[in-house]
Design a protein around this nucleic acid. Structure first.
Lengths: 221, 221
DNA sequence: TAGGTCGTTACGGTTAGCCGTAAGAAAAAC
DNA sequence: GTTTTTCTTACGGCTAACCGTAACGACCTA
Protein backbone atom coordinates (compact mmCIF):
# COMPACT_ATOMS: atom_id res chain seq x y z
CA UNK A 1 0.00 0.00 0.00
CA UNK A 2 2.68 2.47 1.02
CA UNK A 3 6.01 1.55 -0.44
CA UNK A 4 7.66 4.82 -1.36
CA UNK A 5 8.40 7.29 1.40
CA UNK A 6 10.31 10.54 1.73
CA UNK A 7 11.60 11.79 5.06
CA UNK A 8 12.34 15.47 5.68
CA UNK A 9 14.04 16.00 9.01
CA UNK A 10 17.03 18.18 9.77
CA UNK A 11 17.95 16.60 13.06
CA UNK A 12 20.43 13.87 12.15
CA UNK A 13 19.61 11.53 15.04
CA UNK A 14 15.87 11.73 14.43
CA UNK A 15 16.35 11.27 10.71
CA UNK A 16 18.39 8.11 11.30
CA UNK A 17 15.79 6.68 13.65
CA UNK A 18 13.03 7.20 11.14
CA UNK A 19 15.16 5.59 8.44
CA UNK A 20 15.78 2.60 10.66
CA UNK A 21 12.09 2.33 11.43
CA UNK A 22 11.31 2.35 7.72
CA UNK A 23 13.77 -0.49 7.23
CA UNK A 24 12.11 -2.47 9.98
CA UNK A 25 8.77 -1.87 8.32
CA UNK A 26 10.29 -3.21 5.09
CA UNK A 27 9.51 -0.18 3.01
CA UNK A 28 10.66 -0.86 -0.51
CA UNK A 29 11.93 2.63 -1.20
CA UNK A 30 12.60 5.43 1.25
CA UNK A 31 14.55 8.64 0.75
CA UNK A 32 15.69 10.98 3.44
CA UNK A 33 16.69 14.62 3.22
CA UNK A 34 17.77 17.31 5.65
CA UNK A 35 16.23 20.32 3.94
CA UNK A 36 12.69 21.14 2.88
CA UNK A 37 13.82 22.28 -0.55
CA UNK A 38 15.42 18.92 -1.21
CA UNK A 39 12.24 17.19 -0.20
CA UNK A 40 10.16 19.23 -2.58
CA UNK A 41 12.58 18.68 -5.44
CA UNK A 42 12.49 14.94 -4.92
CA UNK A 43 8.70 14.93 -4.76
CA UNK A 44 8.59 16.93 -7.97
CA UNK A 45 11.10 14.67 -9.74
CA UNK A 46 9.45 11.46 -8.58
CA UNK A 47 6.10 12.61 -9.84
CA UNK A 48 7.52 13.51 -13.24
CA UNK A 49 9.14 10.08 -13.45
CA UNK A 50 5.76 8.54 -12.83
CA UNK A 51 6.93 7.05 -9.56
CA UNK A 52 5.44 9.40 -6.98
CA UNK A 53 5.90 9.08 -3.24
CA UNK A 54 3.08 7.61 -1.21
CA UNK A 55 4.00 9.32 2.01
CA UNK A 56 5.85 12.39 3.23
CA UNK A 57 7.22 12.24 6.77
CA UNK A 58 8.30 15.67 7.93
CA UNK A 59 9.30 17.66 10.97
CA UNK A 60 7.71 21.09 11.53
CA UNK A 61 10.62 23.29 12.46
CA UNK A 62 13.88 23.30 10.51
CA UNK A 63 16.91 25.12 11.66
CA UNK A 64 18.39 27.84 9.51
CA UNK A 65 22.06 27.00 8.98
CA UNK A 66 22.84 29.73 6.51
CA UNK A 67 22.20 27.86 3.27
CA UNK A 68 19.34 29.73 1.73
CA UNK A 69 16.11 27.78 1.47
CA UNK A 70 12.99 28.68 -0.44
CA UNK A 71 10.87 26.64 1.95
CA UNK A 72 11.57 27.36 5.56
CA UNK A 73 9.56 24.86 7.54
CA UNK A 74 7.27 21.88 7.61
CA UNK A 75 4.13 23.93 7.21
CA UNK A 76 5.24 25.40 3.91
CA UNK A 77 6.57 22.05 2.80
CA UNK A 78 3.19 20.40 3.32
CA UNK A 79 1.44 23.15 1.37
CA UNK A 80 3.93 23.01 -1.50
CA UNK A 81 3.98 19.23 -1.66
CA UNK A 82 0.23 19.11 -1.96
CA UNK A 83 0.30 21.67 -4.75
CA UNK A 84 2.56 19.37 -6.72
CA UNK A 85 0.93 16.13 -5.71
CA UNK A 86 -2.45 16.65 -4.04
CA UNK A 87 -2.87 13.00 -3.10
CA UNK A 88 0.34 12.57 -1.17
CA UNK A 89 -0.20 11.48 2.39
CA UNK A 90 1.55 13.40 5.16
CA UNK A 91 2.81 12.26 8.53
CA UNK A 92 4.14 14.99 10.80
CA UNK A 93 6.86 13.89 13.20
CA UNK A 94 7.61 16.69 15.60
CA UNK A 95 8.21 17.63 19.20
CA UNK A 96 5.27 20.02 19.05
CA UNK A 97 3.10 19.68 22.15
CA UNK A 98 0.60 22.50 21.79
CA UNK A 99 -2.82 21.02 21.09
CA UNK A 100 -3.91 24.09 19.15
CA UNK A 101 -1.12 23.61 16.66
CA UNK A 102 -1.65 19.87 16.27
CA UNK A 103 -5.35 20.40 15.86
CA UNK A 104 -4.66 23.04 13.25
CA UNK A 105 -2.44 20.66 11.28
CA UNK A 106 -5.28 18.22 10.87
CA UNK A 107 -7.88 20.87 10.09
CA UNK A 108 -6.04 23.41 7.97
CA UNK A 109 -3.20 21.34 6.54
CA UNK A 110 -5.19 18.13 6.31
CA UNK A 111 -2.35 15.96 7.47
CA UNK A 112 -3.01 12.24 7.78
CA UNK A 113 -1.02 11.46 10.89
CA UNK A 114 0.84 13.10 13.73
CA UNK A 115 3.47 11.45 15.91
CA UNK A 116 5.10 13.36 18.72
CA UNK A 117 8.80 12.97 19.41
CA UNK A 118 8.37 11.50 22.85
CA UNK A 119 8.65 8.41 24.94
CA UNK A 120 7.34 5.74 22.57
CA UNK A 121 7.69 7.60 19.32
CA UNK A 122 9.16 4.72 17.32
CA UNK A 123 6.32 2.42 18.34
CA UNK A 124 3.91 5.19 17.47
CA UNK A 125 5.51 5.65 14.09
CA UNK A 126 4.83 2.03 13.36
CA UNK A 127 1.25 2.28 14.55
CA UNK A 128 0.72 5.36 12.46
CA UNK A 129 2.18 3.59 9.49
CA UNK A 130 -0.18 0.66 9.94
CA UNK A 131 -3.12 3.00 10.11
CA UNK A 132 -2.05 4.87 6.99
CA UNK A 133 -1.56 1.59 5.13
CA UNK A 134 -5.20 0.85 5.79
CA UNK A 135 -6.16 4.28 4.57
CA UNK A 136 -6.97 5.56 8.05
CA UNK A 137 -5.69 8.72 9.67
CA UNK A 138 -3.64 8.51 12.86
CA UNK A 139 -4.36 10.89 15.72
CA UNK A 140 -2.07 11.20 18.70
CA UNK A 141 -3.42 9.38 21.68
CA UNK A 142 -4.04 12.33 23.95
CA UNK A 143 -5.16 14.93 21.46
CA UNK A 144 -8.82 14.88 22.35
CA UNK A 145 -8.11 15.55 26.01
CA UNK A 146 -5.53 18.18 25.29
CA UNK A 147 -7.80 20.19 23.05
CA UNK A 148 -10.41 20.27 25.77
CA UNK A 149 -7.91 21.38 28.38
CA UNK A 150 -6.56 24.34 26.55
CA UNK A 151 -9.06 25.71 24.10
CA UNK A 152 -10.83 27.89 26.60
CA UNK A 153 -10.94 30.91 24.42
CA UNK A 154 -10.88 31.44 20.70
CA UNK A 155 -8.58 34.28 19.76
CA UNK A 156 -9.38 36.37 16.74
CA UNK A 157 -6.72 37.95 14.55
CA UNK A 158 -7.69 41.24 16.12
CA UNK A 159 -7.11 39.92 19.63
CA UNK A 160 -3.73 38.56 18.67
CA UNK A 161 -2.72 41.87 17.12
CA UNK A 162 -3.47 43.70 20.32
CA UNK A 163 -1.69 41.18 22.49
CA UNK A 164 1.33 41.17 20.23
CA UNK A 165 1.57 44.95 20.36
CA UNK A 166 1.24 44.91 24.12
CA UNK A 167 4.02 42.36 24.41
CA UNK A 168 6.18 44.66 22.31
CA UNK A 169 5.83 47.51 24.77
CA UNK A 170 3.08 49.50 23.08
CA UNK A 171 0.74 51.26 25.46
CA UNK A 172 -2.94 51.07 24.80
CA UNK A 173 -3.18 54.60 23.45
CA UNK A 174 -0.45 53.77 20.95
CA UNK A 175 -2.21 50.56 19.99
CA UNK A 176 -5.34 52.49 19.12
CA UNK A 177 -3.25 54.79 16.96
CA UNK A 178 -1.51 51.84 15.33
CA UNK A 179 -4.83 50.27 14.43
CA UNK A 180 -6.05 53.53 12.98
CA UNK A 181 -2.91 53.95 10.87
CA UNK A 182 -3.21 50.41 9.55
CA UNK A 183 -6.92 50.97 8.98
CA UNK A 184 -7.97 48.02 11.08
CA UNK A 185 -11.66 48.30 11.68
CA UNK A 186 -12.28 48.98 15.37
CA UNK A 187 -9.50 51.25 16.47
CA UNK A 188 -10.57 53.27 19.47
CA UNK A 189 -8.81 53.19 22.80
CA UNK A 190 -12.10 52.23 24.36
CA UNK A 191 -12.37 49.16 22.16
CA UNK A 192 -8.85 48.07 22.97
CA UNK A 193 -9.55 48.41 26.66
CA UNK A 194 -12.81 46.51 26.43
CA UNK A 195 -11.33 43.73 24.35
CA UNK A 196 -8.49 43.16 26.76
CA UNK A 197 -10.86 43.25 29.68
CA UNK A 198 -13.07 40.67 28.02
CA UNK A 199 -10.20 38.33 27.17
CA UNK A 200 -8.80 38.52 30.68
CA UNK A 201 -12.17 37.79 32.22
CA UNK A 202 -12.74 34.91 29.83
CA UNK A 203 -9.48 33.30 30.87
CA UNK A 204 -9.69 34.22 34.53
CA UNK A 205 -6.73 36.56 34.49
CA UNK A 206 -6.38 39.86 36.27
CA UNK A 207 -3.34 41.27 34.52
CA UNK A 208 -1.98 41.51 31.00
CA UNK A 209 1.28 39.96 32.10
CA UNK A 210 -0.57 36.70 32.71
CA UNK A 211 -2.19 36.95 29.33
CA UNK A 212 1.09 37.47 27.50
CA UNK A 213 2.64 34.49 29.27
CA UNK A 214 -0.39 32.35 28.46
CA UNK A 215 -0.23 33.27 24.79
CA UNK A 216 3.45 32.45 24.67
CA UNK A 217 2.91 29.08 26.31
CA UNK A 218 0.06 28.07 24.05
CA UNK A 219 1.90 29.17 20.92
CA UNK A 220 -0.32 32.10 20.03
CA UNK A 221 2.61 34.45 20.29
CA UNK B 1 39.55 5.42 28.01
CA UNK B 2 35.78 5.45 27.98
CA UNK B 3 34.35 2.01 27.62
CA UNK B 4 31.32 1.89 29.86
CA UNK B 5 28.48 4.29 29.15
CA UNK B 6 24.94 4.77 30.39
CA UNK B 7 22.32 6.60 28.36
CA UNK B 8 19.27 8.22 29.96
CA UNK B 9 16.81 9.43 27.35
CA UNK B 10 13.06 9.02 27.35
CA UNK B 11 12.50 9.73 23.67
CA UNK B 12 12.70 6.35 22.01
CA UNK B 13 14.00 7.57 18.66
CA UNK B 14 16.75 9.66 20.22
CA UNK B 15 17.69 6.82 22.55
CA UNK B 16 18.06 4.44 19.63
CA UNK B 17 20.21 6.87 17.70
CA UNK B 18 22.56 7.32 20.62
CA UNK B 19 22.75 3.56 21.04
CA UNK B 20 23.62 3.16 17.40
CA UNK B 21 26.25 5.84 17.66
CA UNK B 22 27.80 4.04 20.61
CA UNK B 23 27.96 0.87 18.58
CA UNK B 24 29.70 2.70 15.77
CA UNK B 25 32.18 4.08 18.27
CA UNK B 26 32.81 0.50 19.42
CA UNK B 27 32.00 1.11 23.07
CA UNK B 28 32.55 -2.13 24.94
CA UNK B 29 29.58 -1.75 27.23
CA UNK B 30 26.66 0.64 26.98
CA UNK B 31 23.35 0.59 28.80
CA UNK B 32 20.30 2.60 27.94
CA UNK B 33 17.33 3.53 30.09
CA UNK B 34 14.19 5.59 29.66
CA UNK B 35 13.83 6.92 33.19
CA UNK B 36 16.17 8.89 35.43
CA UNK B 37 15.53 6.59 38.38
CA UNK B 38 16.69 3.60 36.35
CA UNK B 39 19.82 5.46 35.38
CA UNK B 40 20.67 6.26 38.96
CA UNK B 41 20.04 2.69 40.09
CA UNK B 42 22.33 1.35 37.43
CA UNK B 43 25.04 3.83 38.32
CA UNK B 44 24.72 2.84 41.96
CA UNK B 45 24.81 -0.89 41.21
CA UNK B 46 27.73 -0.60 38.79
CA UNK B 47 29.77 1.26 41.34
CA UNK B 48 29.09 -1.32 44.05
CA UNK B 49 30.14 -4.08 41.69
CA UNK B 50 33.41 -2.27 41.15
CA UNK B 51 32.61 -1.68 37.49
CA UNK B 52 31.51 1.96 37.43
CA UNK B 53 30.39 3.81 34.36
CA UNK B 54 32.82 6.18 32.71
CA UNK B 55 30.20 8.39 31.12
CA UNK B 56 26.57 9.39 31.61
CA UNK B 57 24.74 10.65 28.53
CA UNK B 58 21.48 12.28 29.49
CA UNK B 59 18.67 14.44 28.22
CA UNK B 60 17.49 17.37 30.34
CA UNK B 61 13.73 17.11 30.23
CA UNK B 62 11.88 13.86 30.81
CA UNK B 63 8.21 13.49 30.27
CA UNK B 64 5.98 12.47 33.15
CA UNK B 65 4.02 9.42 32.03
CA UNK B 66 2.35 8.66 35.33
CA UNK B 67 4.88 6.20 36.74
CA UNK B 68 6.18 7.96 39.81
CA UNK B 69 9.83 8.93 39.64
CA UNK B 70 12.04 10.14 42.46
CA UNK B 71 14.21 12.02 40.00
CA UNK B 72 12.29 14.15 37.57
CA UNK B 73 14.81 15.48 35.11
CA UNK B 74 18.33 15.60 33.84
CA UNK B 75 19.44 18.30 36.23
CA UNK B 76 18.56 16.24 39.29
CA UNK B 77 20.04 13.15 37.69
CA UNK B 78 23.40 14.84 37.19
CA UNK B 79 23.43 16.03 40.78
CA UNK B 80 22.48 12.63 42.16
CA UNK B 81 24.89 10.73 39.93
CA UNK B 82 27.77 12.89 41.08
CA UNK B 83 26.84 12.30 44.71
CA UNK B 84 27.18 8.57 44.16
CA UNK B 85 30.16 8.73 41.85
CA UNK B 86 31.82 12.16 41.85
CA UNK B 87 34.20 11.32 39.04
CA UNK B 88 31.63 10.24 36.46
CA UNK B 89 31.76 12.27 33.29
CA UNK B 90 28.56 13.78 31.96
CA UNK B 91 27.46 14.55 28.42
CA UNK B 92 24.16 16.36 28.07
CA UNK B 93 22.24 15.61 24.87
CA UNK B 94 19.27 17.92 24.63
CA UNK B 95 17.30 20.21 22.39
CA UNK B 96 17.93 23.08 24.78
CA UNK B 97 18.88 26.22 22.88
CA UNK B 98 19.00 28.89 25.56
CA UNK B 99 22.59 29.92 26.08
CA UNK B 100 21.97 30.85 29.70
CA UNK B 101 20.91 27.30 30.49
CA UNK B 102 23.77 25.68 28.61
CA UNK B 103 26.23 28.00 30.25
CA UNK B 104 24.75 27.18 33.61
CA UNK B 105 25.19 23.46 32.99
CA UNK B 106 28.92 23.88 32.55
CA UNK B 107 29.30 26.26 35.46
CA UNK B 108 26.93 24.96 38.11
CA UNK B 109 26.55 21.33 37.11
CA UNK B 110 30.11 20.96 35.85
CA UNK B 111 29.14 18.85 32.88
CA UNK B 112 31.90 17.74 30.54
CA UNK B 113 30.10 18.06 27.22
CA UNK B 114 26.95 19.39 25.63
CA UNK B 115 25.51 18.30 22.29
CA UNK B 116 22.37 19.88 20.95
CA UNK B 117 19.74 17.80 19.23
CA UNK B 118 20.07 19.51 15.87
CA UNK B 119 21.27 19.20 12.35
CA UNK B 120 24.54 17.34 12.84
CA UNK B 121 23.98 15.96 16.28
CA UNK B 122 25.28 12.46 15.57
CA UNK B 123 28.51 13.82 14.16
CA UNK B 124 28.74 16.10 17.16
CA UNK B 125 28.20 13.20 19.51
CA UNK B 126 31.18 11.49 18.00
CA UNK B 127 33.31 14.63 18.23
CA UNK B 128 32.28 15.09 21.83
CA UNK B 129 33.15 11.51 22.54
CA UNK B 130 36.60 11.93 21.04
CA UNK B 131 37.19 15.01 23.14
CA UNK B 132 36.07 13.24 26.31
CA UNK B 133 38.29 10.28 25.54
CA UNK B 134 41.23 12.63 25.58
CA UNK B 135 40.09 14.07 28.86
CA UNK B 136 38.92 17.32 27.27
CA UNK B 137 35.55 19.00 27.67
CA UNK B 138 33.35 19.56 24.63
CA UNK B 139 31.60 22.87 24.18
CA UNK B 140 28.94 23.43 21.56
CA UNK B 141 30.29 25.31 18.60
CA UNK B 142 28.30 28.50 18.95
CA UNK B 143 28.11 28.81 22.72
CA UNK B 144 30.61 31.64 23.05
CA UNK B 145 28.69 33.84 20.61
CA UNK B 146 25.34 32.98 22.06
CA UNK B 147 26.31 33.88 25.60
CA UNK B 148 27.42 37.29 24.44
CA UNK B 149 24.18 37.88 22.57
CA UNK B 150 21.83 37.15 25.40
CA UNK B 151 23.40 37.73 28.77
CA UNK B 152 22.50 41.37 28.94
CA UNK B 153 21.30 41.32 32.49
CA UNK B 154 21.99 39.09 35.45
CA UNK B 155 18.81 38.27 37.31
CA UNK B 156 18.95 37.68 41.04
CA UNK B 157 16.65 35.30 42.87
CA UNK B 158 14.82 38.34 44.15
CA UNK B 159 14.24 39.68 40.66
CA UNK B 160 12.89 36.35 39.50
CA UNK B 161 10.53 36.16 42.47
CA UNK B 162 9.04 39.51 41.59
CA UNK B 163 8.70 38.70 37.93
CA UNK B 164 7.14 35.34 38.67
CA UNK B 165 4.56 36.92 40.96
CA UNK B 166 3.75 39.55 38.36
CA UNK B 167 3.26 36.89 35.73
CA UNK B 168 0.84 35.16 38.10
CA UNK B 169 -1.37 38.22 38.31
CA UNK B 170 -0.15 39.74 41.55
CA UNK B 171 -0.22 43.49 41.65
CA UNK B 172 2.78 45.30 43.02
CA UNK B 173 1.15 46.13 46.33
CA UNK B 174 0.38 42.44 46.81
CA UNK B 175 3.92 41.50 45.91
CA UNK B 176 5.26 43.75 48.68
CA UNK B 177 2.91 42.05 51.11
CA UNK B 178 3.93 38.61 49.87
CA UNK B 179 7.59 39.40 50.39
CA UNK B 180 6.87 40.67 53.90
CA UNK B 181 4.94 37.53 54.78
CA UNK B 182 7.72 35.29 53.49
CA UNK B 183 10.26 37.49 55.29
CA UNK B 184 12.23 38.23 52.18
CA UNK B 185 14.60 41.05 52.94
CA UNK B 186 13.58 44.15 50.94
CA UNK B 187 9.83 44.10 50.89
CA UNK B 188 8.48 47.59 50.36
CA UNK B 189 6.31 48.61 47.46
CA UNK B 190 8.87 51.25 46.63
CA UNK B 191 11.61 48.65 46.29
CA UNK B 192 9.48 46.50 44.03
CA UNK B 193 8.74 49.47 41.83
CA UNK B 194 12.37 50.51 41.67
CA UNK B 195 13.62 47.03 40.95
CA UNK B 196 11.23 46.58 38.07
CA UNK B 197 12.10 50.00 36.75
CA UNK B 198 15.78 49.17 36.87
CA UNK B 199 15.37 45.81 35.15
CA UNK B 200 13.25 47.29 32.40
CA UNK B 201 15.73 50.08 31.78
CA UNK B 202 18.62 47.62 31.75
CA UNK B 203 16.92 45.58 29.05
CA UNK B 204 15.47 48.51 27.16
CA UNK B 205 11.86 47.66 27.87
CA UNK B 206 9.04 50.02 28.66
CA UNK B 207 6.42 47.61 29.98
CA UNK B 208 6.29 44.58 32.21
CA UNK B 209 4.58 42.57 29.52
CA UNK B 210 7.78 42.69 27.48
CA UNK B 211 9.76 41.63 30.49
CA UNK B 212 7.57 38.63 31.19
CA UNK B 213 7.81 37.50 27.59
CA UNK B 214 11.57 37.95 27.60
CA UNK B 215 11.93 35.88 30.76
CA UNK B 216 9.80 33.14 29.28
CA UNK B 217 11.83 33.08 26.10
CA UNK B 218 15.18 32.96 27.84
CA UNK B 219 14.06 30.26 30.24
CA UNK B 220 14.08 32.33 33.40
CA UNK B 221 10.39 31.69 33.90
C1' DT C 1 -39.79 54.48 7.93
C1' DA C 2 -39.72 53.25 12.65
C1' DG C 3 -37.87 50.33 16.03
C1' DG C 4 -34.58 47.19 17.58
C1' DT C 5 -30.05 45.16 18.27
C1' DC C 6 -25.27 45.10 18.17
C1' DG C 7 -20.86 46.99 17.83
C1' DT C 8 -18.07 51.08 18.29
C1' DT C 9 -16.82 55.27 20.43
C1' DA C 10 -16.48 59.12 23.83
C1' DC C 11 -16.26 60.61 28.51
C1' DG C 12 -15.34 60.53 33.53
C1' DG C 13 -14.27 58.59 37.89
C1' DT C 14 -11.32 55.43 40.28
C1' DT C 15 -7.26 52.69 40.86
C1' DA C 16 -2.72 50.93 39.88
C1' DG C 17 1.65 51.82 38.15
C1' DC C 18 5.52 55.07 37.21
C1' DC C 19 9.11 58.14 38.81
C1' DG C 20 11.45 61.62 41.35
C1' DT C 21 12.78 63.21 45.92
C1' DA C 22 13.99 62.89 50.49
C1' DA C 23 14.18 60.73 54.92
C1' DG C 24 15.69 56.76 57.45
C1' DA C 25 18.41 52.44 58.32
C1' DA C 26 22.15 49.39 57.59
C1' DA C 27 26.64 48.38 56.12
C1' DA C 28 31.22 49.73 55.01
C1' DA C 29 35.15 52.72 55.41
C1' DC C 30 38.03 55.59 58.02
C1' DG D 1 33.06 55.73 67.20
C1' DT D 2 32.12 58.57 63.51
C1' DT D 3 31.58 59.37 58.80
C1' DT D 4 30.47 57.92 54.31
C1' DT D 5 28.23 55.14 51.32
C1' DT D 6 24.65 52.22 50.02
C1' DC D 7 20.32 50.28 50.46
C1' DT D 8 15.61 50.60 51.89
C1' DT D 9 11.49 53.00 52.69
C1' DA D 10 7.85 56.63 52.66
C1' DC D 11 5.45 60.19 50.29
C1' DG D 12 3.40 62.80 46.39
C1' DG D 13 2.52 64.15 41.74
C1' DC D 14 1.62 62.32 37.37
C1' DT D 15 0.29 59.11 33.74
C1' DA D 16 -1.69 54.90 32.15
C1' DA D 17 -4.90 51.54 32.84
C1' DC D 18 -9.38 49.97 34.45
C1' DC D 19 -14.38 50.05 34.31
C1' DG D 20 -18.97 51.76 34.06
C1' DT D 21 -22.23 54.62 31.46
C1' DA D 22 -24.15 56.72 27.72
C1' DA D 23 -24.23 58.40 23.12
C1' DC D 24 -23.63 57.39 18.29
C1' DG D 25 -23.76 54.74 14.08
C1' DA D 26 -24.51 50.64 11.20
C1' DC D 27 -27.35 46.99 10.13
C1' DC D 28 -31.37 44.10 10.35
C1' DT D 29 -36.21 43.47 10.97
C1' DA D 30 -41.04 44.55 10.99
Amino acid sequence: MIDKVIIAEDQESANLSVQKTMEELRIAHSDYVYYCDDALNKIQAAKLKGQPYDLLITDLYFEDDGTHQAIAGGFDLIRSAREIQPGIRVLVFSGETRPATIDMLFKNYEIDAFVRKARHDVKELKSAFDALSKGQPYYPRALAQLVKQSNTYEFTEFDISIIRLISQGYQQKQIAEYLRQHSIKPSSLSTVEKRLNQIREELGFSKNEQLVLFCKETGIL
